[in-house]
Simulated scan of single mutants.
Amino acid sequence: MPKSKRSKKVSLTKIKKKDLDSKQSFIDEIRNCANTYKRIFIFSFDNIKNSFIKEIRLAWRDSSRLFFCKNRVMAVALGRTSAEEIDENLHLVSGKLMGNRGLLFTNAKKKDVLEYFDSYSRPEYPHAGSIATERFEVPEGPLEQFAHSLEPYLRKLGLPTVLQKGVPTMLYSHVVCKEGDVLKPEQAKLLKLFNRQTAQFKLTMEFMWSKKNKSFEDFGRTKDVVFITKSKKTSQR
C-alpha cells in the first residue's frame, strides 16, 4: 500500500534554505539594478493592488524595474551603512526603507517620473486599518440590490436588517463610518458591498538617488510612515 503523503516528513532545513535562496535572489537582482540604472526612486504606497502594479510595470517595462519586497532585504542589498553600501550614498536610500515603501530603478528622466506618478491614481475599495475619507450611512428601508440569502451576512457585519417579503430591509438608518475613522474589517467589507471606492491607489515618489553624481534628493513629500504589522508584505518584483 502506498505511503500516505500526509505522513511525509519535511525537513525544516529545506524550508529555511528555500527562503534564503529567495532572499538572495532578490538581493542579487536589486544589486544588479543598482549597477545598471541611472536613478533610484524611493516611493510610498497606499491601498496596493496587484492589477494596478501590473499596469505600472507594463508602462515602464522598457526603462525601469519596480520592487516591492521586505524593506530589510532591499536595505541589505544596497548596504545599510557607508561601509556596506555597494555605491556611494546608497546607505541613505536604505535608511528610508521603512513602512510601506518600495524602489523604482529607472533610466527615465526625473521630470518624466514625477509627472507620471503625480498624475497616476486609481479608485480602490478601502482596506481594514485605512482611514475613512468620507461619511457613509445606509438609510432605513429595503436593500433591493442584495439577495435574500445575504441578509444574515449583512446583519453579521453590523447592519440592523431583517427579511421583509424576501428583501433584506434596514429597520433604521445606520452610519457605517465617519470621515477620519480607522476602518474595522466589518466596515471595510460593508463599503465594498455597497460599491464605495473611497480609497485611492497611488505611489508617491519621495526620494531619489542619482548614479551620475551620487546625490540623494528629498522631494519633501514624506508622509507619516505606515507599518504593516498584521500580515507580512508580499514580495513582488
Rank of each mutant, 00 (worst) to 15 (best):
P2Y: 09
K3T: 13
S4F: 12
R6I: 14
R6Y: 12
S7H: 11
K9Y: 13
S11Q: 12
S11P: 04
L12F: 07
I15E: 12
I15W: 02
D21I: 06
Q24H: 10
Q24N: 15
I30C: 01
I30V: 10
R31Q: 15
R31C: 04
A34Y: 00
K38V: 00
F45L: 14
K49R: 13
E55H: 15
E55Q: 15
L66M: 10
K70I: 08
A77C: 03
L78T: 02
H91F: 15
K96I: 05
L97E: 06
M98L: 10
N100P: 04
N100T: 14
R101L: 09
G102H: 05
K109I: 05
K109E: 14
K110A: 08
V113D: 02
V113R: 00
E115T: 10
Y116P: 01
Y116N: 04
D118V: 03
D118R: 03
R122W: 02
A128V: 02
A128I: 05
S130H: 05
I131D: 05
A132I: 01
E134D: 06
F136A: 00
V138T: 04
E140D: 09
H148N: 09
E151I: 04
P152Q: 13
P152M: 09
Y153R: 12
L159M: 04
T161C: 10
K165T: 12
G166L: 08
T169L: 06
T169Q: 04
L171E: 15
V176E: 00
D181I: 03
V182N: 13
A188L: 02
K189Y: 03
L190K: 04
L193K: 11
A199S: 12
L203K: 01
T204N: 09
K212C: 02
D218E: 08
K230C: 05
K233G: 09
K233C: 08
R237K: 10
R237T: 11
